[in-house]
Design a protein around this nucleic acid. Structure first.
Lengths: 126, 126
DNA sequence: TTGCACTTACGAAAGTCTTCGTATATACTT
DNA sequence: AAGTATATACGAAGACTTTCGTAAGTGCAA
């Protein structure tokens, strides 16, 4: 019923589809091969499975089918993040944020952005 | 060589071991069963595999073996977080923090904690 | 039109994860 | 001592993921 959680390999493909928009297998496979070696039929098979699962949508009008992510990047990442937080941080996103901030040395610019975001949340919250 | 990334089921067990300290299978299985139904031998097998992988350590002095997490909670979660950020947020922890802050409505107390943490980082950073 | 390049479809192998049944050993209890 | 409860060891099934080989269809070019 629901769109299932993408596997790691599927997520790699989704990132490409989100970044470049609807694309044929050949294009996605080329992009993947800029990072690691993957056979064309491997990518094809994965993308076909993604359609079966409802993770991707394809247009078969042309001989070379065009694939597209079924869910938005933001919605998918929110869901993944939520599941990860549940599994690893007992559901507390704040614990995770604290941990991320605690070790990743963020740049001043990034810290400023976060502060600005927090202030906006505080303003909206009241 | 390296300790491998725990699977989801293994992580569940690790959380119990971190929370309650070194424990026998029976105890871990009981705790798991407070959340979902799992057979005793399933838990046993998983914990044995965790020892094989180096994820857990066990003491076999007593008839009922005592298992313990091999790596600290903080170290493990840092590593998991890093891998998740790489896979889902292109390596940018800040992107992920922003997304987490953006939708999870944090409590004022949590926001204050984060602000305090940011200020501490800024002070230490210079 | 014959052949080459490229595409999808399909099946299956190999690896991993989760689950549990069964066998066997060990301790306790009556 | 016999029987019951509890522990570990082991193997294997079933599901899922990733990978690729091979077959078959389609279009283009010489």
């Amino acid at each position: 019923m629901e769109i299932p959680k993408p596997t790691e390999a599927e997520l790699e493909i989704l990132q490409i589809l989100w970044h470049y928009g609807p694309s044929p297998v050949r294009f996605v496979n080329d992009k993947l091969n800029e990072q690691r070696e993957v056979g064309y039929t491997t990518t094809l098979k994965l993308m076909q499975i993604m359609v079966d699962k409802g993770i991707a949508i394809r247009n078969t009008d042309q001989r070379s089918h065009i694939y597209e992510a079924a869910a938005s990047e933001a919605a998918t990442k929110t869901k993944l993040l939520g599941q990860f937080v549940d599994a690893a941080f007992n559901g507390s996103a704040m614990k995770m944020v604290m941990q991320a901030l605690g070790q990743h040395q963020a740049s001043q610019k990034e810290l400023d952005e976060i502060k600005a975001l927090i202030e906006r949340i505080e303003r909206e919250g009241q």
